[in-house]
């Protein structure tokens, strides 16, 4: 089934098209949710909520960008809304608390390389992780992040800076990245 057929079917609320859309995009979208969520169960909740929004709003898709990008944006917003309801997330956006967190190297999971970075990201405090996900990976600006999370733009920048430093530290401890040299360059382990 082509993307156009899926889209047309979903607009007509055809179950087969809806399922095809879900099968095509749900794995990657669950990966997105997993980076934001506390655990897999929460990630699946976010995914479910996000796809329901996708199906109910799909008639608003204008073909101005990729369908995947449009779905991804809805899923990310759903993740943020989901997180905002969570008490732990609200606590985690507090910079003072987050700055005192220490990541122990032995807590970093030893998993396959592809998932390693994602798991390292998930080791960050929730507030850091969310800002980092939104800025570095999803491509939102600090202004947009500030609006989404209802925080100051400066807070977003500050959180991102701290998140980036902390993630670098984790990646180095995990031996995914080599230590920065004097010229501030970092290199992936194994790079020549």
């Amino acid at each position: 089934m082509t993307e156009e057929q899926m889209l047309a079917g979903c607009i007509k609320e055809h179950t087969a098209s809806q399922e095809a859309l879900y099968q095509r995009f749900s794995p990657r979208m669950l990966g997105v949710c997993y980076r934001f969520a506390g655990n897999r169960e929460d990630a699946e909740d976010m995914l479910q909520e996000g796809f329901i929004k996708v199906y109910t709003q799909i008639h608003q898709f204008r073909n101005e960008g990729s369908l995947e990008g449009w779905i991804r944006r809805i899923v990310v917003h759903t993740c943020i809304n989901h997180l905002k309801k969570n008490k732990k997330f609200r606590e985690s956006v507090d910079l003072i608390h987050a700055s005192h967190l220490i990541i122990r190297p032995d807590t970093i999971p030893s998993i396959m390389q592809a998932k390693q970075v994602v798991e390292c990201i998930r080791l960050l405090p929730w507030g850091y992780r969310t800002v980092l996900n939104l800025y570095a990976i999803e491509g939102f600006s600090h202004r947009e992040i500030a609006q989404m999370l209802e925080i100051e733009e400066s807070t977003s920048r500050s959180q991102y800076t701290r998140a980036k430093a902390m993630l670098e530290d984790i990646l180095i401890k995990k031996n995914i990245l080599s230590k920065p040299r004097s010229n501030r360059k970092l290199s992936a382990v194994g790079a020549h």
Binding site: L30, G31, V118, I121, I137, E168, A188, G190
Partner: peptide
């Protein structure tokens, strides 16, 4: 990931690494 990257490319590194992550 066997490419050299710089501090300014941190976002690019993360994006490339996580982009194909699926569950």
């Amino acid at each position: 990931m066997a490419e050299q990257w710089f501090d300014d490319s941190f976002e690019e590194f993360l994006k490339e690494t996580t982009n194909d992550f699926r569950m």
